[in-house]
Design a protein around this nucleic acid. Sequence first.
DNA 1: GATTTTACGTCAGCCTTGTTGACTTTCCAA
DNA 2: TTGGAAAGTCAACAAGGCTGACGTAAAATC
Lengths: 165, 165
Amino acid sequence: MDHLQTGENLLFLTDDQVRKGIEAMFFAYRGFTADPDRILEGMDYGRAHHRALHFIHRSPGTTVNNLLAILGVTKQSLNRVLRSLIADDLVESRVGHSDKRERHLHLTEKGAALERRLSDAQRARLRAAYRAAGPGAVQGFRLVLEAMMDEDANRQYQSLKEANI
Amino acid sequence: MDHLQTGENLLFLTDDQVRKGIEAMFFAYRGFTADPDRILEGMDYGRAHHRALHFIHRSPGTTVNNLLAILGVTKQSLNRVLRSLIADDLVESRVGHSDKRERHLHLTEKGAALERRLSDAQRARLRAAYRAAGPGAVQGFRLVLEAMMDEDANRQYQSLKEANI
DNA sequence: GATTTTACGTCAGCCTTGTTGACTTTCCAA
DNA sequence: TTGGAAAGTCAACAAGGCTGACGTAAAATC
């Protein structure tokens, strides 16, 4: 089987070629998380804490339930992470004004500082990759990733407030 | 800051734009692993078993040490996985011919069948994503991922035997 | 030929991060 | 006004990483 391509944008790729894409995802994801992981090792935090900080930063005031939907884990799992972040004064949990069952989450100064440090490292790697791959590649990268997401993940992803891309 | 682009292939992207790439990786990776995860849940296996099956399939006869280097885990961790795969007759471990210290790993019929089932599902999703993103996007996708890998991961990745891309 | 190194396996114990189950507090609607 | 649903918390367990220590066989080195 050759890698031709017909009029409709239907791609003919061999299984081996697609498999290479699969391995690219595997190895790339390891690089993607390597820098934050390195920063966090030694602190009492891990990747789960990084994710929580990231999405609280992205949507200040978000509720635990919102965060749950985005992260796709159980509330008990998230709670453990939030508890330590709150105890260490990285995250502030404010009881809801209208609905007192809700907790609205915000980063403290300290939390924002760590989040910045983590995302700076991760952004630096992504920028470097973009630069190495060239301007044309960035669009393709994003398109394939978006098409790879589940329906609901894609909705979460698209609903970024600052969707100025 | 605008997203301009100068003569050198240096990209100016806002932090928010790069952050969106970061989130794309996060959500896409979840989709990427979702189908195999679903297949494996219920069996006594997990993502670690899938990875082992994948790379043994890719390089039949590979040694434990090779696999260790590719997967980037400790031998104790890998051993736990291999032990159960061997016990369940999905993987065969053959003592080395020239060097009897080595164990060469092969999939059994049963192991190959499960590997096929898992990779078929994963390939189907990737093909669908490629098709949705269009022919031009695939190249960019791969370029950015490759640039995102660590040095040694990239070497592992590039040293595919069937590197007919 | 003796020693050291390599490849592999295993036991024990720890940590992170997922899970389910059971529980409070709060809200809302019948 | 009361009973169910929703938001959040606590407890206990499992998967899959990790380190450290040890054993065995084979290979390599001196």
